[in-house]
Amino acid sequence: MAVHSFQEHFDSLIDRDITIEPKDWMPDDYRKTLIRQISQHAHSEIVGMLPEGNWITRAPSLRRKAVLLAKVQDEAGHGLYLYSAAETLGITRDEMYNQLHSGKAKYSSIFNYPTLTWADMGAIGWLVDGAAIMNQVPLCRTSYGPYARAMVRVCKEESFHQRQGFEIMLTLAKGTEIQKKMAQDAFNRWWWPSIMMFGPPDAESPNTEQSVRWKIKRFTNDELRQKFVDVTVEQTKVLGLEMPDKDIKWNEARGHYDYGQINWEEFWNVVKGNGPCNKQRLDARRNAWDEGKWVRDAAMAHAEKRKARTAAVKAA
């Protein structure tokens, strides 16, 4: 097949909604886009454990502690599913780790915000996981097979993450005045970063069109953001909290809630590394990698010893 017919074959698979698998021919840019997107997604899962790890030892009850541990363990698992999916495209695990640790690779900028109170565990589960799920559900039908399969697994597991967060918020919102204030404060701090999670507006998102064409993305950033705003406003009523955005208003003509101006300058600033916790997060990752070296070495040495022992038994 000539190159253009490879391309035609690929396009026709995409047009017919037939999944692309690792050994199929794919355009270089499709491969590159996927490696970037999947590895960023994996990094986000791994770095995403850090803000919550902060609260495991200080969870208010054994139940909350067990739940938070399970959630953080899931996130490690999700990172691993995604790293494996990216590896099928020809990048190695260590290359991806290097990109994260050197600061070359990005991860979701939401994790560069600090977790100041226990209510932040509620707000993260409810809003951050809620926004992530909104983003991830359509990715279960993304055109690259290993990514889609990883996302199916992630989405199945993640639903509890959002529900436990909402439950924390609800408990606080129905609690004492101080608890309610704490919930509202967490909501206020996490709301804007959460709706920024969907990425820049469509007009300023140059890669969106191509990604939609390749069926990597099924919806644009603004479409998903709107969906998230619409459901969250309704959920906020159940909590009895106030939307942190005074411009939230039902728009009868659009059939959606209008929302206020997002501070994109802040978003780009955090993406560029100047958020409140960028340095802390990266340092924590690098330390974990460096200080875990002896564990990796010991496991390898153990494996070699075991192999030698088995070989000796066989020889005898």
Binding site: L80, R93, R153, A299, A303
Partner: peptide, 11 residues
């Protein structure tokens, strides 16, 4: 189910 890295089969 998927893949993972490990030093040997047992691990």
């Amino acid at each position: 189910a998927g893949s993972l890295h490990a030093p040997d089969a047992q691990m």
